[in-house]
Design a protein around this nucleic acid. Structure first.
Lengths: 231, 231
DNA sequence: CGACAGTTTGAACAATCTCAAGCCGCGTGG
DNA sequence: CCACGCGGCTTGAGATTGTTCAAACTGTCG
């Protein structure tokens, strides 16, 4: 179980909402956290369930999504090391969350987390900033979903993954796709077939190079960038 | 210009982030606010400009949107009395905002607003809750844009407007559309023609009744509700 | 009363989806 | 070590939804 020490050596901390906390504050927060380890494929948040917990991802990647009753699915986002989950609503969870790789996370009881928030203004600040960033990203995605063509969506997606990798201290160029074509399609509002076709097309045009199915080289990044914006 | 008195009689307050503030706190916040009145059509936030201010809408309605270089537009949302604008980024504005009707608003300098936030935890709480709600709404809209058919989008839109009217203390049934077909289309990721066709179709099927171009009766609300979810 | 902006309607078109095969890589078991 | 089988990915052809382009309508405001 977590200890102040666990936080002290936590590799996710520089990327997490707990980054700005002092050692004492960290201990205060840590008192209410539980460490979990989940296998790939585990669904750990169910849309519609009472939102009892919130989570901080310390290792691995996950996806969050919403479903329509007939099974249509919209992937809302992909979560990586340092991402926080559970801010959004005070009622039931608005999304479901599933591990894409083996996943490590800190879990907090929502009620105690909210109480801690009041005691640690730095934490509340960080959470507000983070939530605002997520909102900004969601708006960008609304633009993508509402107004971009398939090619533009895929190009935007590849670049955003690349930028994210950089933020996490990884390389910008060979982009890793930890998710399958179905997840990409459900994230971009397309079908797997269309995603596949567009990738082949971009490859043919020399804008990308595919290494197997889950690694992409962004040759001609500039061209991809102008594609994003509709060139 | 605003005074503590202005806040005391403000009709938007019950719907605003300042609702939970005490009289003293209100005075503290008010010290940094300016009241503005804008004509319909005025653009008061420009995407990409440095985000110097944030705003609280006290009367009227506005729209926020994002543009692609070639002019394609995604309307991100419609703002009404009590809505707050400007949380999102710490860098430049991520959206543009335009008055749809004559608009009254409280304007805050971003830097002083952030300073006041630190002094008024109740305000920061309210803002975090509000931002989380917006995020939840944005995610719902991502589902709509990525996965719903045109009929479903329009039905969802009418119902969400109706629910919003109720929250503002207005009637649920004759829904007012303060925006034109173009704005609706750009909000739903469709064209005006498609919006128009769907509305006619819903009218023909007896699900709605149109009173002129900007008032809609939701006859058979239940049918609309199941349409939203894909029935 | 007339003009104009916004809305509605119509017909042809195009992007993406659907349905259907085939392919590839990989893990398993012989 | 290699053949097999399975899941995910790719490719193809045809169907569909929504778009585009164009014209007619409406009602609002000088």
């Amino acid at each position: 179980m977590p200890t102040a020490e666990a936080c002290a050596v936590c590799e996710a901390r520089p990327f997490s909402i707990c980054a700005p906390l002092s050692t004492a504050e960290l201990a205060e927060l840590d008192r209410f956290s539980t460490t979990l380890h989940l296998p790939a494929g585990a669904t750990f948040v169910h849309e519609g369930d009472p939102a009892d917990h919130c989570f901080n991802i310390t290792a691995g990647s996950a996806k969050i999504y919403k479903l329509l009753p007939d099974g249509r699915r919209q992937v809302i986002g992909f979560l990586f090391t340092g991402d926080f989950l559970g801010t959004a609503t005070r009622g039931p969870y608005g999304i479901s969350a599933e591990a894409m790789t083996p996943l490590s996370l800190c879990r907090f009881e929502r009620t105690s987390f909210r109480a801690v928030l009041s005691r640690l203004p730095a934490l509340e600040h960080a959470l507000l900033d983070r939530t605002a960033d997520e909102l900004e990203a969601a708006r960008e995605q609304m633009l993508l979903l509402g107004r971009k063509a398939a090619r533009e969506r895929v190009a935007s997606f590849l670049l955003s993954l690349s930028r994210r990798a950089v933020r996490l201290g990884r390389v910008a160029d060979p982009v890793q796709l930890p998710m399958g074509r179905t997840d990409i399609a459900d994230y971009l509002g397309l079908t797997t077939e269309t995603v596949s076709r567009v990738l082949t097309q971009l490859r043919t045009e020399g804008m990308i190079r595919l290494n197997g199915t889950s690694e992409v080289h962004l040759t001609r990044r500039a061209a991809l960038e102008s594609l994003c914006e509709g060139a």
